[in-house]
Simulated assay, not measured.
Amino acid sequence: MDWVKLPKRNSTIAFIDTRRGIAMLYRMSLVLCALFFGLSGCRQDYSLSPPADSEKITIMVKLPKELKTETVWVMYRSATCKRISLGASGQRTERDGYHSVYKELERQGQSDIYQVELPKDGGGACRWHLANATFGVVYADPTRFGEYVTAGAGGGVIVIFDYNNSPRGGPDFKVDGDLTIKRDYYPWVKEAFLGGYHKRISLAGEGGIYLKYQALKARTVYFEPILHSAFTVFSTQPKEKKEGNHTAFTYPDGTVVADGRSQPDFLKLQSLRTGRAGDCLSPWTYHKCPDRRPQLLPEWLPVPDKPGFGQYLIVDEWGNKLPTYDYRLVGKDGRINKWKTDAKGLTLPVPESMHPLREVEFP
Rank of each mutant, 00 (worst) to 15 (best):
Y186M: 08
A151Q: 04
E361L: 13
R276Q: 09
E352M: 07
I113L: 10
S40C: 12
N164Y: 08
K120S: 09
R92H: 10
T18S: 07
I84A: 13
R335D: 05
I209T: 11
P264G: 08
V303M: 02
T285F: 04
I158Y: 06
K62M: 07
V116C: 11
I22M: 06
G152I: 07
T255L: 14
Q115K: 15
Y251H: 12
P7W: 03
F223Y: 15
K239I: 03
E243Y: 13
V256P: 12
Y163H: 06
K344P: 00
L35Q: 14
K242H: 06
P283F: 10
R107E: 05
P351Y: 12
T180H: 05
V330S: 05
S40M: 09
G275V: 02
D279A: 13
Q91C: 04
V350L: 01
Q263R: 14
S78W: 04
K190V: 00
D121Q: 14
F223P: 06
F249Y: 15
M1H: 01
A140C: 05
E206K: 14
L346H: 03
T150F: 06
T347V: 01
D112R: 15
F362A: 01
P142V: 09
L296A: 02
K321T: 04
P225W: 10
A52C: 03
D112K: 14
G260E: 12
P252Y: 14
V256A: 13
I22L: 13
E206P: 01
G331C: 12
A343F: 01
D178H: 04
G123K: 09
R328E: 13
K288N: 05
V233L: 13
H228S: 10
G275I: 04
G244P: 08
D121N: 15
P50Q: 09
D253E: 13
Y222M: 12
R9E: 12
R276V: 02
G124N: 09
R92F: 13
S111T: 15
P51T: 12
C42I: 06
L348H: 05
L25S: 08
G97F: 11
D342N: 14
D291T: 06
E359A: 13
A34I: 11
V74H: 11
T236W: 06
E104W: 01
K268Q: 14
N165M: 04
D291C: 00
D178M: 08
I226N: 10
V74S: 08
V31C: 11
K120V: 00
K288G: 01
T285A: 03
P252Q: 15
R83C: 02
E240Y: 11
D172Q: 14
V189G: 00
D265E: 14
G109L: 09
P264H: 11
L130P: 04
I158M: 13
K217P: 00
S353I: 09
L39Q: 10
M354D: 13
S282E: 11
I13W: 06
E70W: 00
T236P: 02
K344S: 01
W73V: 07
Y148H: 14
T180Y: 07
P304W: 05
F231Q: 13
P252N: 15
G334I: 13
E359V: 12
M24Q: 07
G260T: 09
D316G: 01
D45T: 03
D2I: 02
F362G: 02
T18A: 03
L297T: 03
H287V: 10
F223L: 09
R95C: 02
V159I: 10
L118P: 02
T93G: 03
I209K: 09
A218L: 07
S89C: 05
G41E: 14
Q110I: 00
N245P: 01
